[in-house]
Write a protein that binds this DNA or RNA. Structure first.
Lengths: 244, 244
DNA sequence: CGGACGTTTTGTTGCCGGCCGAAGTGTCCG
DNA sequence: CGGACACTTCGGCCGGCAACAAAACGTCCG
């Protein structure tokens, strides 16, 4: 445990807390952990270590910091230590920060990177809901059909509730805002988050509308998904075909 | 200039940039600088140094980092080096991060601190617009009068435009979004930012509706302001009287 | 011109923190 | 029971960075 004396110097209130929070993300390895965890899943310590290219012992230390700092929560099962983001707020915070990284700070190094980047921009999960071009298009279409209302903040209409029910989706409002606007990384426009966004995303996975590309956050629309999105929300073809 | 080799290790894309950005705020002194600059004004290097309690030479180094990192912009006048936040986006980023600092991370140390905190929660500037209870109340009232529309994102209605014109406010939409929702620190609800929010705030200062408390970001509603806000927006008394 | 002042550079010091390997603990499974 | 595996703790190495003082630079003003 650090000293935490807080009397070393005359420092304006809040600065220490802000620096501490930022400090959690101010390391390449920890940042890589958090970005990986943005997929909303629980990772084991070794998975993260391999992903970031550090020794398991190093990962342990970092995970302790992130858990102590409240960004991550852990769940132990047998000899495994599963860890995931503390919640949607944390995910949104990291996405916001990522969106603020000046472009060109990490120049594109290869074709593979560029291609992956394009896939992410097209459709990806943002913690537990959908983002990218696809996520924004869904949100726009739901607004157009009157399923979402933007009066004084975002809300789900009665028509929207019954539409979801027709799909077999029931949003559990237990301890979470029903809908939430989440500013997009690339589109710079709001898309649907919150409990409904999460339920919709889950349903899309379970119904086989979308599938993950590899192990990352990028997703692809399946043939069944193309039919469903066209039929349900009249999404244009551009957002249904994979980015190329 | 640092090495910037970026080939030291196999690191997932984006992590380096995120860590670099967070690293700018991961220092007590730099964090104190940014929090001070949240008042939207330009500070000189020595002012910031004294405010944070460090030597001028130390401040110089930090300011270089923040300018190079794009968070701050500088403007030199004679022997002075004025520095301010790069823009509204930067301010919003810092506010967002501040809002995410776990409460209790910096325990209340004195009565004076607690009182200042309450004043901030009641009414303050958020870079160039109004936040806190007052800012949220204004936004709500403007929505109630039909000056703001929340259809698919926030927008200013025609009625809102003419209302502003009646006050002598003309929002210059040059190179900036007209209205923007900005999540509040304490209220956890959106309030009015963007060019309109800035213009409104400026007008409130110039018309003597509000005045700064001391040198910080906290503001107080004047007697003239109470009349104006009651007459124009029918704000309730609770938000017009100073927090106590 | 010369002193005052704001800022910057340079050099130095000390500490913090990330990294690893090796050894230890606990869990699973044959 | 013993080996494989996931994780943790410990010690040591190393680099980076924040801090200061001192001196140099530039601007302003009497």
């Amino acid at each position: 445990m650090a000293t935490m004396s807080s009397f070393d110097r005359q420092v304006p209130e809040g600065a220490t807390g802000l620096a501490a929070l930022a400090g959690l993300l101010a390391d390449r390895t920890r940042a890589a952990f958090c970005l990986a965890l943005l997929d909303g899943r629980a990772w084991t310590a070794t998975e993260l270590a391999r992903h970031a290219g550090v020794a398991p012992s190093t990962a342990t230390g970092h995970l302790h910091q992130l858990v102590d700092g409240g960004l991550l929560v852990e769940e132990r099962q047998g000899r495994h230590r599963y860890v995931r983001l503390a919640g949607p707020d944390t995910a949104e915070l990291i996405e916001t920060l990522t969106a603020a990284v000046p472009v060109g700070a990490a120049p594109v190094r290869s074709l593979a990177v560029a291609s992956r980047r394009r896939a992410l921009a097209h459709a990806r999960t943002c913690y537990d809901h959908l983002a990218g071009t696809l996520g924004v298009a869904i949100t726009d279409a739901m607004t157009g059909y009157g399923y979402l209302a933007w009066e004084r903040g975002l809300s789900l209409t009665d028509r929207g509730t019954s539409w979801l029910a027709g799909l077999g989706i029931e949003a559990e409002c237990a301890r979470r805002v029903l809908v939430r606007s989440c500013l997009d990384w690339t589109e710079r426009r709001p898309h649907l988050g919150g409990a409904v966004g999460a339920a919709l995303c889950r349903h899309a996975f379970e119904a086989g509308w979308i599938g993950r590309i590899g192990t990352g956050r990028a997703v692809a629309v399946t043939a069944a998904g193309q039919r469903a999105f066209r039929e349900q929300l009249a999404l244009p073809d551009e957002v249904l075909t994979p980015a190329r």
